[in-house]
Design a protein around this nucleic acid. Structure first.
Length: 441
RNA sequence: GGCGGGUUGGCCGAGUGGUCGAAGGCGGCUGUCUUGAAAACAGCUAGACGGGAAACCGUCUCGGGGGUUCGAAUCCCUCACCCGCCGCCA
């Protein structure tokens, strides 16, 4: 959420951001926002004046009540008379207070609702651009591998090796669900364990988060209210299945006050992720490039505003290091203004080259959210200097998302005989196994 | 699912109708003392919003919401969460 004062004093910048992010929407009417803020302030000023007056009257009644207990009957009668007069004055204020309080609440509620739909503004280093086609490539690592045979793509490899079963996934749960079997499941487990071990070495605290969260938690990270239709919802219990571990871990310190010396805080979390992918029908439907449930290890950081952009670089580097050790070809792109997500101030996407599919696959999205999520989550820290509490900055990035990574590994390390070589760093997690071969029945 | 006890500032913890935004302690900051530090002593130390050039002033906030009252941390209702005991169960 953006600060109301920031919106008002940077109105055109916010207006441009809303347009850039394609967030233009009847719910966001910035001219109305300005008007509402004016009426909110006016109502509050009026309300405060009447309330102050009423408070003064009440304070006069207290001592008079004491006099009612005295023995002098004339004095008691006089006090009673005074009390009645004060009560009458007080009652006369009620209508006005109620009226102003109503006006204030009405304006504030509308302002809050509108603010909930206004996206974060981009950092100054974010490049201009309208869509994914305009995202500049920051760097590329490795070389695309060459084959002396026609390489298979992920779905074929998975099914041929017997490590992926999409048909039965569809039967059991529906399209977009799948089984990993045998060495496919083991490779997944190895990757997750290895990621977490690497992150722990880099100072990230490993957590296993709740897979279901409440509405407030989703509001905090920015999924709600805008992306309601992308979430699985258990209505009986008013709980949502998490689309990423970012959601529960960002809420870890919600409504809390941290100390500056506690920062930065670094977490890594492994979880299943659940996404309805509404509106994505027809895209990447074959295999495991776009699915409703997948595993992911997520890295998160809570930092001070001063260090968050440096921490974004190191977060991205931590994700890249994993890919480098796996020996895969990848590139890093910066999302342009038009492609930047709702809550993000700056994002790097990391894409793996999948030689069989012939596409770059996004396996990590590393973002700095600035204070946007912290504001929505009421998450502050006390500064070392002792000044006012500040909102922390939050960052997160995948390290890494499993299905597309598996796809890239299969495709990159496939052999002429159809088997797949296991990347060296993972072998100790697989009992030394060096190769995945077709599973018999 | 049933019954009982809780929820107060960064933390702990007093406070059962008025002078309470809240005693006391811890922690933090500042000063005195000291070569420096510790200790001791003194002072300061919640947030949001509004008004104001500022000093400062006002309103609201004692888990959330609603109610009673001139006035609520305090009384009533309700919801959430936490801690017990019972039931069910991986």
């Amino acid at each position: 959420m953006l600060d109301t004062k920031f919106i008002l004093s940077n109105l055109e910048f916010v207006r441009q951001t809303v347009a850039d992010k394609g967030a233009a929407h009847a719910r966001i009417d910035l001219d109305k926002f300005v008007r509402l803020d004016e009426s909110r302030r006016k109502a509050q000023t009026e309300n405060d004046r009447f309330a102050a007056e009423k408070n003064k009257l009440s304070k006069q009644i207290g001592p008079l009540m004491g006099k009612l207990k005295g023995s002098d009957e004339a004095a008691r009668a006089a006090a009673q008379k005074e009390i009645d007069a004060l009560k009458a004055q007080s009652a006369a204020l009620d209508d006005q207070i109620q009226q102003q309080a109503f006006e204030f609440a009405k304006a504030e509620t509308e302002l809050d609702q509108m603010r909930a739909w206004i996206p974060n503004v981009p950092h100054e280093s974010v490049p201009p651009g309208k869509s994914a086609a305009d995202n500049p490539v920051v760097r590329t690592w490795g070389e695309p591998c060459r084959f002396e045979f026609k390489p298979k793509f992920q779905y074929e490899l998975g099914e041929d090796l017997g490590i992926l079963d999409c048909a039965r996934g569809a039967k059991v749960a529906g399209s977009g669900f799948y089984f990993l079997c045998g060495d496919g499941a083991r490779l997944e487990r190895a990757l997750i364990a290895w990621f977490l071990d690497e992150h722990r070495k880099n100072g990230y605290l490993e957590v296993i988060p709740p897979y279901f969260v409440n509405e407030k938690t989703l509001f905090g990270s920015g999924q709600l209210p805008k992306f309601l239709d992308q979430m699985y919802y258990a209505g009986e219990d008013k709980l949502f299945a998490i689309p990423t571990a970012e959601v529960p871990v960002t809420a870890f310190y919600r409504d809390e006050m941290l100390g500056e010396s506690d920062l930065p805080k670094k977490f890594c979390a492994s979880s299943a992720c659940f996404r309805r992918e509404a509106g994505a029908a027809g895209a990447d439907t074959r295999g495991i490039l776009r699915v409703h449930q997948f595993n992911k290890v997520e890295m998160l950081k809570y930092t001070t505003p001063e260090t968050s952009y440096a921490e974004l670089e190191s977060l991205t580097a931590d994700a890249e290091a994993l890919i480098q050790k796996l020996g895969l070809h990848y590139r890093v792109i910066t999302l342009c203004r038009g492609d930047l997500g709702f809550s993000a101030a700056k994002t790097y996407d990391i894409e793996l080259w999948a030689p069989g599919t012939g596409k770059w696959l996004e396996v990590s999205s590393c973002s700095n959210f600035g204070d946007y999520q912290a504001r929505r989550s009421n998450l502050r820290y006390k500064t070392a200097g002792g000044g006012k509490p500040q909102f922390v900055h939050t960052l997160n990035g995948s390290g890494l998302a499993l299905p597309r990574l598996q796809a890239a590994i299969w495709e990159t390390y496939q052999q002429k005989d159809g088997s797949v070589i296991v990347p060296e760093v993972l072998r100790s997690y697989l009992g030394g196994q060096e190769r995945i071969e077709a599973r018999k029945a």
